[in-house]
Amino acid sequence: MNLTLKIWRQKNQQDKGGFKDYKISDISPDMSFLEMIDVLNEDLVKKGEDPVHFDHDCREGICGMCSMVINGRPHGPKQAITTCQLHMRSFSDGDTITIEPWRAKAFPVIKDLVVDRTPFERIMQAGGYVSINTGGVPDANAIPIPKNMAEDAMDAAACIGCGACVASCKNASAMLFVSAKVSQLALLPQGMIERKSRVEKMLMQMDAEGFGACTNTGACSAECPKEISLTHIARLNREYYSAKVYSENV
């Protein structure tokens, strides 16, 4: 396959950045998308040019590091996979592929396609945990949990924190990310104790980071590589109202 790549190049956070076109030839359909960029980068290095920087690590769809908007879609044209799981057979010879970084005020570009996702860290630090220390916990089977509830919690917990929800949302909202954690811990008895303060604090941090608000468009869930459902956002909303009504945090 021969392709034209239109890639966002930006030297650093201060640089204005812009698109640059690259021609690339002899691409095998068996290559993964990132391997195709590896090939481009090897070429660039040979020519003495700075390779295209992008985040990636596990290359099996679970670490959440890879982050590219390919032809307008986070993680590319296929549903329920990450960029690293995308293969070149999903493209055709002669295609022009536009590759951009995640775009959001809260996720500034560090270099080329690499963005800063530390706002997610701060949201998690605001309450995405159960406050227990190591040791001194009850036996694992002390509290039975209905199977369907454990499954629902697992659906939410599957979030890989990649940020595709933010990247795809027209408002760059982080609601799906926040809802996944709030929902997981709201469903499990272990999360009950801090249920109210958790949702209040995490949402407050989310707002402070400059993400947009949710308008229930559903793009987040549609582009989520782990197909996290909008029902978790609904649960997040319920948790918030109930916290605001019942909690004693004035």
């Binding site: 227990i132 916990v137 036996d139 509290i143 199977k147 454990a150 811990l185 272990q190």
Partner: peptide, 12 residues
Amino acid sequence: DQCVAQGVPFAR
């Protein structure tokens, strides 16, 4: 025990 207490959703 520790992981369950943290809210790890093990299969049940």
